[in-house]
Write a protein that binds this DNA or RNA. Sequence first.
RNA 1: AGUCCGAUAGUGUAAUGGUAACACUACAGAUUUUGAUUCUGUCAUUCUAGGUUCGAACCCUGGUCGGACUACCA
Length: 554
Amino acid sequence: MSEEKSLNFLEEIIEKDIAAGVNNGRVHTRFPPEPNGYLHIGHASSICLNFGLAKKYNGQCNLRFDDTNPSTEETEYVDSIKADIKWLGFEWSNELYASDYFEQLYQFAVKLIEKGLAYVDDSSAEEMAEQKGDIGKPGIDSPYRSRTIAENLQLFQDMKEGKYPDGAKVLRARIDMTHPNLLLRDPIIYRIKHVHHHRTGDKWCLYPMYDFAHGQSDSIEEITHSICTLEFIHHRPLYDWFIEQLGIFPSHQYEFARRSVSYMITSKRKLLQLVNENHVTGWDDPRMPTISGMRRRGYPAAAVRQFCEMIGVAKRENLVDIGVLEFCVREQLNKTANRVMAVLDPVKVILTNYPEGQSEVLMADNNTEDENAGTRELTFGRELYIERDDFMEDAPKKFFRLAPGLSVRLKHAYIITCNEVIKDANGNITELHCTYNTESKSGNDTSGVHVKGVIHWVNAATAVPAEVRMYNRLFTVEDPANAEGDFKDHINANSMEVNHGAFVEPSLLKAQTGNQFQFMRKGYFSVDRDSTAEKLVFNQTVGLKDTFAKEMKK
RNA sequence: AGUCCGAUAGUGUAAUGGUAACACUACAGAUUUUGAUUCUGUCAUUCUAGGUUCGAACCCUGGUCGGACUACCA
């Protein structure tokens, strides 16, 4: 084993179980989403955990949809969830649904009734809340708690047969109304819902509660290590109770702290609100913390996986800096993204000593980090565009770019020197008149001139206009979920800035949706699905580290 | 108030009774035809009070602080 790396607490548990021969050393996990929303970064780490553990210990991982509440669940979500898991690079052993077990779950409930461990309750929701007691205050028994087994059996069957309206009756486990764990104070296990289910149709009007479905589903699938987030820790005694009373396979649940990421929210309810109220353009808006959003933004799946691996797993509350995710994105893209040149905020450069009407072809490597990335051709000419902020009229001494009288190298091309600044009536710079050093051609430089700065450019004659969508954090505060006031008060009004005036090199005309590039010196960008042959559209994935900008702020 | 969970550099995670470490960040420097990448270095950490022990981040007890739980949601 290459166990240089230390184990996280779940791996420790699993390795101890394997060593002790628990379940004959078998490891079987599962990822159990409810199909009522799109998967987000939090799910991504759960997916990496569950599928990763199964892979590491030669086990299996099921995909199980927890579809016990037909009121909120839809097939659209099932499809998106499957697509997201595949994109992340994982394959499930079995595609399963809690609804597959409705009949079996019903029989489990009957068995509990027969053992005198469940009863039908006619109390209203309010009455039950009243009887439940409170934290530190014991509850009291429902007046229906002592119905006979025969009566309960009959009533439960009547419920199944649709003889009662929604909410008229529920089935409850008979445990202990004074238990310090509120979840064990006779929890509801079945409720009546005359609702169409996305898979079972109108077969049922009786649906199990999550707590009566989840643990038993794990048990039915003989899941050995059922891993979930910390808030379900109080549910574990209940699952164990069902398993014991039913005498079924003993799955064990282990809880970890969900990972929060700064400037992101992962509440499905809030995410849905962002979509429905048009604060974003959809579930896959590149600003969303959803897997589909990150994919559209251009985050590589490998970066998301690396991130999940890097932040680890433990049981304490946490808020991971979003910078770690961005670091992973850059690290992956640095190795894989081809370099191209794009000028986001152009200003025209005229090379006064370059013959009019002339042009030449230059060779450029696509990625020095990847020797297999190949090369491409660039056209050079008399009129070019460079980045407006790569020029300064009054440059400080540490400014290694273009300024009157100063020289820079144009990447893959020549060294140029600025001679004259042309302005319009308002004083805005419209053109920079420069000369190029004819002996300084890239790769063939005999000029003996050394310049510190290198800037990117595009040839005005062949440049292609493009729309570039720049993104900032969706929220203005680190922890929007826990900030003062409503989370929507903290939405960043400038989270997207659309630039319609960019120019990119013509090689990008061949780019396909989803292709990722480094716009040299600017950042990583990907082709959006809105992009067409007539109009190229790019998403800013993440900027490059910019120590110069940081320096300038000081 | 009851039960449960947790507390290690700014952040995240290790160290499982024997020299507190790794990554990110920050800062400084080297290299660089991307002020990117790469490389080198620097700063900074065990909530608290007792106890057990030759020795405690780790085990025990008390305290403090933070979190979770009182849906016919999952």
